[in-house]
Design a protein around this nucleic acid. Structure first.
Lengths: 208, 208, 208, 208
DNA sequence: TCGTAAGCGAGACGGTACGTCGAGTCTTGCT
DNA sequence: AGCAAGACTCGACGTACCGTCTCGCTTACGA
C-alpha cells in the first residue's frame, strides 16, 4: 500500500478518463525504492532510513521519493505493507487454526526486519497524527486474518455468539506485541501455544 | 532515579573524604531539568525534547545536562522514572488486588503524558542498545508490583504453585500495552476488569 | 533577436523548400514567452526568471521554452534585444549628435528594467563563455550607433582622422556603465553632457 | 573586512567588558574559510563558491560559515576585501601619481581572480539590496586612494579647486571597469595612460 | 485523405545546491 | 571541579531549480 497523493478514489469501475496528463510515474522506480528502503531498514533500523542514502542507492533523486511518500514514516509503513501475509488456515478447528495462523505470523516476523521498523513507527506516532492513522490502518489489515479465524469459530459454535472479538484479539495479540516491542523477549511457538490455550480456556464453549 | 556517571553510592562506608575537589553539582538544577524535560515531552513528545530548548528553558547550559544524562533517551527514561508508583494493594484476594493495582496504574498513565514518551522510547530501542537495557530495567521495576501481587496469590493458594508468572504477566500487561502503544484505543476500568477475569479463568484454582 | 537553433536567415535566397515537415512553431507563444520573461525580470531580476514559473505564467511547457532558448542567459539576452534602439541623430554637429544619442539611450534605460537584467547577465559571463559571446554581440550592436555618430564626426573633420574610436567609445560609455552597473548612481542628462564635453575637450580639433 | 554580526562598535578605547561569554569564534577558521573561498572563486568563479564544497575543503561545518557570512555574496565581498591595496604614490606630480596608482591597481586585478568575482557580485546586486550596500562600501574604499591622489592634485594647483572629483573619478574608472566587466577586453598600461591623458587634457590647469 | 513528423502541455526524472536544524563535544572565563 | 555561554563538527532534512525525458494530444504538410 503506497501513499500516492492521488489515490483512494475507491474502486472506480472501468476508469474512463484515468489517463492523466504528463509523464506517468515510474512503477519500476517505486519498486526499487521500496526494495532499497527495506534493505536499509534491515541493516540499521529506522535511523538508517536516510533519504540521501536511499536516493543514492536507488539511483534516483530525493524529489522522486518525496513525490510518493511525504516522510520517512510513510515510507516505512509502505515497506511494512510489503511484508507477506500468512496463509489463512481453515481446518475446521479453532485451536488448530489459531496456532497455525499465529505460528505463521511470528515466523514471518522473526525472520524479517520488521520489528525494529515497527518499534520506530510507534515512536513516530507521537509526533505525526497522520502517520498514526496510516499505522492503524496497517494494523487493522494485519488483524483482519485473525478476525476471520475467530468469526469462523463463532460460526462453528466454538465461541459464544456474543464474544467480544475485539477484546479477544487484544488478549491474543497483546502478549506477542508486548514481547516484540517492549521487552524484546523471543517469541516462539510455545509462547503462542500458551496464549491460544489461555484464550480458549477463557472463552471457548467446549475447551476440547 | 537519575543516571549519574559517578554513581556507586552505598559502597563507601563512613564517607569522610567525600568532599570532592571543585564545585559540587547543584541538586536544584537537576530537579529543574527533569521538570522542564517533562513539560517538553508533554507538549510535543520526544521530538520536542530538544537539548537547546531544554537548556534555555531550564536556564542552564547543555553541558550541565550532558554531565548528568548522556543522551536524550537517558533523560527521557529518567523522566519516566519520576512517574508515581501506584499503592501496592493487599486485601487478601487476588482478584481485588489485581483490579486495584491495574486500576491505579492506568489512572496514572491516563492522566500523565507518559504514553507518547514510552512510544518514543520504544522507537529509540531500535537504535540504541544501551537505552534498550535501561528501558528494560524501568519496565522490570514497573512489573515488580504486579509480580508481588501474583506471588501473594500463589502463597494464598489462589494460583497453582507452578504458575509461569512471567507468562501470566505478559498475558495481563500485553493487552494494555497493545492499546496504549499500538492502537491508541482508550484503556478504561472495564477493559482491565475483563483482562483480570480472563487471566483468572485461565489460571486460578478457584475462579471464585 | 532570438536565438533559434535553426537560424540561418539571410542565407537561403528565395527559400523554396523552407517548409519543414511537422507542426510549425507558434509565433504567438514566442512573443508571450518573451513578454512574460521581461515581466519576471522586471519584478525580481535574473533570479526570478524561473523556467517553471515562466512556463506557468506563459501557459506553455518548459520544453517549448527550451526549444527556443537553450538557457536562462540566452533568454535574458533575447529580452534585452527587445529593447528599442534610440533614433540615430544626424544634425551635422558632433556635440549635438552625441548629446542626443546618449540622451536617448539613457532615457530608454532609465525607464526600462534593463539594468538589473544587464547586471545579472554580467554575472553569468563568468560561468558561461557562450553567453559571454552572445552578450558581446549585443553590446557591439548597441555601440554601433555611437560608432556611426563618431565616424561622421571624423568625416566632417570634427575629430582627427587617426582617432582611436574604440578608446573614445570606452571613454564615453565607461562612466555611464560604471554608474549603471557598479555604483547604482543615477544617470541624468547633465552627467551625459559632462561626459561629452570631456570627450570633445580631449579629442575634438575645434572644441567649438 | 568581514561581516560579523556583532561588530562595528567602532574603536572603543580600552574595551573594558569586551570579553563576551562563551567560546569565542576561531580566527584561524575564519582565515581558512576566506582562503579556501578565494581558491574556489579562482578555480571556477562564483558558481564554484559552493558552501558544501567550501565546508569540506576548509574542514569546518556549513553552520560555521553561515554564522559569519549570511550568503555567498557576503562571503565573496569579504574575499574581495582581502585583495591587497596598491601603494599610494606621492611624487608631487599628478600625471605620475595617477599612472602609478592605476598601474598598480590593474596589475593587482590582472593577476588575481577578482574580475569574475566582481562580475558575479554585480549580478547579485540585483537580487540582494543588502549586498548592494556592502558592495558600494567596498567600491568606495577602493576609490579612496584615487580620491586622495586627486585631492593632492587640487592642493598643488594642478586641478581647479572647483573640480567635480566624483565625476572625474567616474571618467577615469569607468573605461577600465567597462573593459573588465562588460567587454572583457584586456586592460594594459597603455590603456591607462591614454585615460590619464584624456582626463588631464579635459581638467588640468597646466596640461604639462 | 490520411500518415507522419514535429510542436505542444503536463509533469516526472536525476542532479545539485541550498539554508536550517538537532546531536553531542569543546573552549572560554567565572564561581 | 561545576557552571553559562556559545562556537564547533557532523550529517540529515526538506525545498527549489535546472535541464532532460516521456507521455498523449494536436497541427499541418506532403504523399
Amino acid at each position: 500500500m503506497t501513499t500516492r497523493d492521488s489515490d483512494g478514489r475507491g474502486a472506480a469501475p472501468a476508469e474512463p478518463t484515468r489517463r492523466v496528463r504528463g509523464r506517468p510515474r515510474s512503477d519500476e522506480i517505486e519498486g526499487t525504492i521500496l526494495k532499497v528502503a527495506g534493505e536499509l531498514l534491515a541493516e540499521g533500523g529506522f535511523a538508517a532510513l536516510n533519504f540521501d542514502a536511499l536516493a543514492a542507492r536507488a539511483r534516483c533523486s530525493k524529489a522522486t521519493i518525496y513525490r510518493r511518500w511525504t516522510s520517512k514514516g510513510h515510507l516505512a509503513v509502505a515497506t511494512l505493507a510489503e511484508l507477506p501475509d500468512p496463509a489463512l488456515p481453515d481446518r475446521g478447528d479453532l485451536r488448530e487454526d489459531l496456532r497455525e495462523l499465529l505460528g505463521g505470523v511470528i515466523a514471518i516476523f522473526n525472520q524479517s526486519s520488521a520489528i525494529p521498523v515497527m518499534q520506530s513507527l510507534i515512536g513516530e506516532r507521537a509526533r505525526d497524527p497522520e502517520l498514526a492513522d496510516l499505522l492503524n490502518l496497517a494494523f487493522q489489515a494485519k488483524r483482519e486474518g485473525l478476525a476471520n479465524v475467530l468469526r469462523r469459530g463463532v460460526a462453528r459454535g466454538e465461541l459464544p455468539a456474543e464474544t467480544d472479538l475485539e477484546f479477544l484479539m487484544d488478549l491474543i495479540v497483546g502478549p506477542i506485541l508486548c514481547r516484540y516491542l517492549c521487552t524484546g523477549a523471543p517469541v516462539v511457538e510455545e509462547f503462542v501455544d500458551e496464549i491460544v490455550e489461555a484464550a480458549l480456556t477463557s472463552f471457548a464453549l467446549r475447551p476440547s
